[in-house]
Amino acid sequence: MTPAQPPSEPRPAAPVPPRRRFLAAAAAVAAGAAAVLGPIAAGVVAFLTPLFRKPKSPQVRLALLDQVPADGQPRFFPVVSQRDDAWTRYDQSRVGGVYLVREPGADAPYCLAAKCPHAGCFIGYAAGSDRFQCPCHTSAFLLDGKRVNGDASVSPRDMDRMPVELRSTVAGDAQQTEIWIEFVDFQTGHKEPLPSV
C-alpha cells in the first residue's frame, strides 16, 4: 500500500494565450473525432453493402405448356431458381410462387405474381373459386389479377404480371413447349409496379 498523501492544493494554471488554447481544443476535437469516427465509418460502409448489390431478375423455366390447360383456371407453380444467400449458393431454391392462367383458346398463359402488391403476403387460390384471396389484409383479385374492389381495395394495384416466353425443346424424338418467365420481385405498396431496388 502506498502511504496516504495529504491532498495537495491545485496549482494555479499558467496563463495560456487564447490562440493556443483554441488550437489545442480544435486539435483535440479533430483527433478525438478521427479516432472515434474512423472505426464507425468502417462499420457503416460495411453495413451499407446491400445497397450496392443490384438484384437480378432470373429467367426461370416454370412448367411445360401441357401442364396449363386452356381452361382459364389459375394454377400455382413454385419458382425454382439458383439463389445466393450471402455465402450460401442454392442451385435449386424455391424463390417464390406464381399463378399461370391460360384462357380458353389462348396459345400462352399469363403469369401473375403470388406476392400481394399490398404488403407482400402470399395470395391464395382455392380450386374452382372465381377470385384470388390474400390472407392478410383482405385484398381480393379476379382471375385476371384485377382488384375486386378497384381503388377501394387495400392493394394499391392489380396483381403483378411477369413476362412469359414459350420455348420449344427437342430431345430425341420428343418435342415439348416450355413456359419460361422472368421472375421479377416487385416492390409492395406502390401504385406502379416497381422492381425491387
Binding site: F47, P50, L51, R53, P55, D85, A86, V95, S196, V197
Partner: peptide, 12 residues
C-alpha cells in the same frame, strides 16, 4: 434493403 441485409430474406 438495409434491414433485411439484401434484396431477399436470408442469412443477413
Amino acid at each position: 434493403t438495409l434491414a433485411i441485409g439484401g434484396a431477399g430474406y436470408g442469412h443477413h
